[in-house]
């Protein structure tokens, strides 16, 4: 079975970011270096360092949104665990969804280093005050969606996240190195699962193509609005939180997917997709950004369902959390 062409290179970038992180730590500036000097020297800002309020607020927003995405992202894939068609696939999917909970956990921990509490973050997700990636507001309608999500959605997530391994905020950069390594495993399993379907029975092949047709444009939309309309980008780039523009990353993703689709034997649903010799990139049709904005604002196919599910789980678990807290309080008294 073929590997995921292009993904190895991205994993190499993660390794390089990890090495750069160690080097940066070795040539640390003296304790009094200003925020701007640290950023200029490509060093990492750490939790106790001084930082502009907007830098802090922006990072909290971004890391929280990323953590929330991991948590909500458990639902569309969790939807197929009970029906996975082989025990091996069931184990892989279960492990993957468990990884997402784990990613959520250490991203929340990274956000907490900026002075926000888990309770505040939970509340911001449950009330819809903070967003999560809109991709998870689309339904998973067939088993092939597990493959398409792994290949396209996790693939897009990796393209987005690999540059974050070099983000100027230390705890986020370190969390992202770990997340990216696991995400590349997720992408590989999705790609391989889709490959098996695409080589399978006529019904399986149709299932694979249908999933690709449904997930292609929402995956392209994961890179956010076009550069001209991106609200947070310029400052984020200056502070070295973000390293490439939305459109640059989207292009990188398209260029990576086209040869992969050929190996898989599926057709990307874009009649205008073609190699542009002059640009050295594939030309492609942009996703429908009006649709993206509708989904961001709450009117995607599953926004209400995803948030209701999370709220219900939180409410159903309240008595358990209360019991654990009461038990801990009683035992503190006994010890004291």
């Amino acid at each position: 079975m073929p590997g995921v062409a292009g993904a190895e290179r991205l994993l190499g970038e993660v390794e390089e970011a990890e090495a750069a992180l160690r080097e940066a730590a070795e040539r640390a500036l003296d304790g009094e270096a200003s925020f701007d000097a640290v950023i200029a020297a490509d060093q990492k800002i750490e939790p106790r360092d001084a930082m502009p309020d907007a830098y802090r607020a922006g990072l909290i927003r971004q890391i929280a949104q990323h953590a929330h995405s991991e948590i909500i992202g458990m639902q569309p894939e969790g939807n197929w665990i009970s029906r996975a068609p082989s025990l091996r696939r069931k184990a892989i999917l279960l492990a993957k969804v468990q990884d997402e909970a784990g990613h959520g956990l250490y991203l929340y921990a990274a956000a907490e280093t900026l002075g926000v509490s888990r309770q505040e973050l939970d509340a911001a997700l449950l009330t819809g005050k903070q967003k999560y990636s809109s991709i998870f507001n689309y339904p998973t309608l067939s088993w092939a969606d597990m493959g398409a999500i792994g290949w396209l959605v996790d693939g897009a997530a990796i393209v987005n996240q690999v540059p974050l391994c070099r983000c100027s905020y230390g705890p986020y950069a370190r969390a992202m190195i770990r997340v990216c390594k696991e995400e590349s495993f997720h992408q590989r399993q999705g790609y391989q699962s889709l490959y098996v379907l695409a080589q399978g029975t006529p019904a399986q092949r149709a299932m694979a193509q249908d999933a690709v047709d449904r997930w292609w444009y929402p995956s392209l939309a994961m890179f956010g609005p076009p550069d001209a309309d991106s609200t947070h980008s310029a400052q984020s780039m200056a502070w070295k939180v973000k390293r490439f523009s939305n459109d640059e990353l989207r292009q990188r993703f398209v260029d990576m997917c086209v040869p992969q689709a050929e190996i898989l034997g599926v057709t990307l649903p874009d009649p205008d997709l073609k190699w542009n010799e002059q640009r050295g990139h594939y030309d492609y049709t942009s996703p429908d950004f009006d649709e993206l904005m509708r989904v961001v604002k709450g009117d995607g196919p599953c926004n209400r369902q995803r948030l209701a599910h999370r709220n219900r789980a939180h409410e159903d678990g309240a008595w358990v959390r209360e019991a654990a807290a009461a038990y801990a309080a009683k035992n503190r008294k006994v010890l004291a």
């Binding site: 279960l94 468990q98 999370r310 219900r312």
Partner: peptide, 17 residues
């Protein structure tokens, strides 16, 4: 596996999975 994404805490979600 019915507990996936429904546990009382995130830590417990990981443990049950």
């Amino acid at each position: 596996a019915e507990w996936v994404s429904r546990a009382p805490t995130l830590e417990e979600d990981v443990a049950l999975a």
